[in-house]
Design a binder for these strands. Sequence first.
DNA 1: GTCTGTCCGTGGTCTGACCACTAGCAGGAC
DNA 2: GTCCTGCTAGTGGTCAGACCACGGACAGAC
Lengths: 253, 253
Amino acid sequence: MAKAILNVVRPEEADTQSGAARVFTAFRDWLLSGELKAGDRLLAERELANVLGVSRPVLREALRSLAMLGLLDIQHGRGAYVRAADASVLGQALTLCLAPEPNILDDVLQARIAIECQAIRLACERVSERDLQALAGMLDTLVDSLDDPKTGGRADYAFHLAIVKASGSSALSKMYEAISPLLMRSHVERRRDTFREPAITSHLVDAHRAVFLSLVQRDPDAAEARLREHFKIGDELRRNNLITNYQNEASRT
Amino acid sequence: MAKAILNVVRPEEADTQSGAARVFTAFRDWLLSGELKAGDRLLAERELANVLGVSRPVLREALRSLAMLGLLDIQHGRGAYVRAADASVLGQALTLCLAPEPNILDDVLQARIAIECQAIRLACERVSERDLQALAGMLDTLVDSLDDPKTGGRADYAFHLAIVKASGSSALSKMYEAISPLLMRSHVERRRDTFREPAITSHLVDAHRAVFLSLVQRDPDAAEARLREHFKIGDELRRNNLITNYQNEASRT
DNA sequence: GTCTGTCCGTGGTCTGACCACTAGCAGGAC
DNA sequence: GTCCTGCTAGTGGTCAGACCACGGACAGAC
């Protein structure tokens, strides 16, 4: 009886798409248009199926798909709630897209540089006093945690993320968060062996300070240049360190 | 009987996740690990359900979810095939993530600048003769199609995409393709009213030529600078044009 | 007032059946 | 011999109804 509802919603696609896909598309568009907001509670499955004019299995297939995407939070015994789409969805999609590619880790690093360099330019225009104070605090944390690879890594990431957020661009922020799981994979691998090297730790502090100062001075060109330098030198130091380690290994055997 | 299979696959999650989610995760990981490759044909639903030890509805919920994500191609009467994850998934995820944000269009433009500026730096190192010839061809197309907003827009996009691809970084390429649908939305809006302005069209040609030349000379700093200039001037021209249009409108009424 | 058990509404799962589509094959018409 | 037609087996698509498992609210016992 109520089958008409979905046909009304998308008359042009009603013929080509089958049940579950139709329901899924409808929900996606309701989310996109803001008709459904985060926190909203959906009707019970049985009722919703009736209203939409489909059977419960079909409805469930659509709801599950949305849940897998992270758009819905379905709780056993309680109901289904609309969830704000966060970057984890993006991250998973990115991981899936990039999975078959070779050298993803280096490649993701390029994406990181891209996002951060643009973000810091914007941040130079838009950063607030509050942001700067927060960044200064992170810089302190970073210096304090130099000898702990785990805390240090987190502080490092937090500092860079804060810069991206200070850009005020949610697109850049979301994309940065999306690549962060992949970034971490390469990050921890690299930091594990290098955190004790004085050359690296001292560079770490200097570089972050320099970037921060450029941000305080709101000088986009300098900020980007210093950030690029930071990435470049960091990369070289790690590479040299790997060579040294390798040579030590070789001479020992 | 065969229920053990999935428990073996993910013993740690078997208790916390329920049927469909377990199957979904298993498939996702098979895809990530390469155990399932693009083009592979899945078993029939009834059979697969038996093998995995779940009922058909549960299996279907998982398969549908994968299909909605674009990872599976389910064809009525033929079967289910593994599909290579393309950027469209990413694009959809990004659109969903950014939907509630204000100023997405301007924001996405920032992401575009970020990706292209880094891409062209890489491209300066990695671009091949073949790529350069292709780019030269695109430049000609672009000049020839200045008077047609539709073809012109496509040529413009093709040129920029080609630069990103020339970076050799699939992460950058995929992300660029992911934002392109959103990019298009702002692009066509802007190009619609501006393609007839001589100041804009002449800038368009000069800027693209300058970027291309820097690429030929493999000068990353110059290439990025010219690209940034292109974006900046383009933005200003469009803005001025909007003001002029607005004033014309105003004086007419 | 607090604890506890029951009940109701919710999602989770299953079974078995039927429909719709595709492709391949066999049989007939030419 | 070739082409067309219709059947058939296998596949996904949908459905109805039932039962289980979980969560919360309410009423009763202490």
